[in-house]
Computed example of a mutant assay.
Amino acid sequence: MSSTSWLLYAYPWQPFPRRVIIYLRERSIPSSLVTVVHVTDVQFGGETPEGFPPKPPGSLPILAIPKSNGDSIYIKQSIPIMEFLEEACNTGRWGFPKLSQPPILTLPINKLSLEESISDSTVAKDNKQEIPPLLAARHGELLSLASGLTDSWNPIRIFGSGTGTMRIPAAAKEMLGWTRRNLLAIENWFEENGYSSADLRWDEDGNGPGDKPREGKRQATIAEIVLFQFFDFTHDCYGIDMTRSAGRKVTDVYGREVLEYYPRLESFYKDFLTRPSARRYVDLGDVPHERWIKSMTDWSEGIF
């Protein structure tokens, strides 16, 4: 691969690109390795800044990796991009900042699993550090649940907000029920696995997107980044805090009575918000245009 900076084409404020933006900050990946190319929203021209190749075909984000012959290799979709970059950070390949250890979820099984797997998992072939299989499976569970939240938000905003093509509040409310079902599944996952977000809390001010985690602070996993991105997007852009709940028994989408209460999700969101990687910078395109804000916060009555 070429030594030229890789290019991440993105609308930085939108949900799927923002996942990768947060990831780059969490891993302290400098712009000399991955440069964010701030493409303007389609409604405002969809243009690439001067000095960069035109945006490749496809939805954003798109990671463009230049080849020595002048062509590029493209990786599309946010999660595959993060997983590809994670591999580079895990091995220190292509000059990426090498992780001292793979970021792992803080679960009660961590200490036992790491001690039992120390000879096999912390150092492997090609100097790659691996996560014990059970922890990898738990991360996959959370990532699967978290990634579905942003997908399920689309019909809610289409039918219920000013960003959609039609107003059908009843349909938006129905789809909201399915999203809350997923939220409850994650809340239960947190409880079942003894998950705590306390070690994600950042206790000192940083200076900007390039901040490195201070000693003793772990980096967030891809699953945690994706989960935070959903709460961050719905709250900052649509004005809805999805970690807040009625705190009472409600009827779910299957007609069952469940307790709508997400204390662990609320703690997770508040803890992650303290991290420098979570900050929005106007000059970097992290904040949507005021026209979009007006449309996104224009909700039909009776949905929430």
Results as ranks from 00 to 15, higher is better:
residue 116 E to K: 13
residue 294 K to M: 09
residue 20 V to Y: 01
residue 149 L to E: 01
residue 139 H to D: 13
residue 279 R to I: 10
residue 75 I to P: 04
residue 174 E to Y: 13
residue 59 S to L: 13
residue 26 E to W: 07
residue 117 S to R: 02
residue 86 E to M: 10
residue 122 T to Q: 13
residue 2 S to W: 05
residue 123 V to L: 11
residue 221 T to E: 04
residue 108 P to E: 04
residue 35 T to C: 11
residue 127 N to S: 13
residue 266 E to M: 07
residue 97 P to L: 07
residue 197 S to E: 04
residue 89 C to W: 02
residue 175 M to R: 09
residue 187 E to I: 02
residue 94 W to A: 15
residue 183 L to W: 00
residue 277 S to Y: 00
residue 191 E to P: 03
residue 107 L to R: 05
residue 145 L to Y: 10
residue 262 Y to A: 08
residue 158 I to C: 12
residue 107 L to S: 06
residue 162 G to Q: 11
residue 193 N to H: 11
residue 111 K to I: 14
residue 231 F to P: 03
residue 139 H to E: 13
residue 155 P to H: 02
residue 195 Y to R: 00
residue 56 P to M: 06
residue 265 L to G: 04
residue 138 R to F: 08
residue 127 N to D: 12
residue 272 F to D: 02
residue 161 S to D: 10
residue 68 S to P: 12
residue 193 N to M: 00
residue 252 D to Q: 12
residue 245 S to N: 14
residue 89 C to I: 06
residue 207 N to Y: 04
residue 197 S to W: 04
residue 89 C to G: 09
residue 160 G to F: 05
residue 200 L to D: 03
residue 5 S to H: 10
residue 134 L to S: 15
residue 304 F to H: 06
residue 171 A to N: 00
residue 235 H to I: 11
residue 211 D to P: 04
residue 202 W to N: 05
residue 6 W to K: 09
residue 92 G to Y: 12
residue 143 L to V: 10
residue 69 N to E: 13
residue 143 L to C: 12
residue 99 L to I: 13
residue 247 G to T: 08
residue 196 S to E: 05
residue 71 D to K: 02
residue 229 Q to E: 15
residue 51 G to T: 13
residue 144 S to I: 00
residue 289 H to M: 06
residue 155 P to Q: 00
residue 54 P to F: 09
residue 22 I to H: 07
residue 102 P to I: 00
residue 89 C to M: 10
residue 267 S to P: 01
residue 270 K to G: 01
residue 226 V to H: 02
residue 252 D to E: 12
residue 220 A to K: 03
residue 264 R to C: 07
residue 62 I to G: 05
residue 144 S to G: 08
residue 106 T to H: 13
residue 119 S to M: 12
residue 119 S to L: 11
residue 38 H to Y: 04
residue 135 L to M: 14
residue 40 T to W: 08
residue 104 I to S: 00
residue 94 W to N: 15
residue 300 S to W: 12
residue 32 S to M: 08
residue 132 P to M: 10
residue 136 A to T: 06
residue 253 V to A: 05
residue 133 P to V: 07
residue 188 N to H: 09
residue 277 S to D: 01
residue 63 L to S: 06
residue 213 P to I: 11
residue 86 E to T: 14
residue 38 H to N: 14
residue 130 E to H: 07
residue 45 G to S: 08
residue 7 L to N: 01
residue 214 R to K: 14
residue 243 T to Y: 03
residue 153 W to F: 06
residue 261 Y to T: 08
residue 63 L to N: 03
residue 84 F to N: 08
residue 283 D to F: 08
residue 102 P to Y: 03
residue 271 D to G: 10
residue 289 H to S: 09
residue 13 W to F: 14
residue 220 A to M: 09
residue 239 G to S: 02
residue 172 A to K: 04
residue 220 A to D: 02
residue 281 Y to N: 14
residue 28 S to D: 04
residue 129 Q to A: 13
residue 281 Y to P: 14
residue 280 R to P: 14
residue 198 A to K: 15
residue 56 P to I: 02
residue 294 K to G: 02
residue 50 E to D: 15
residue 251 T to M: 09
residue 76 K to R: 12
residue 152 S to C: 11
residue 23 Y to K: 05
residue 54 P to C: 07
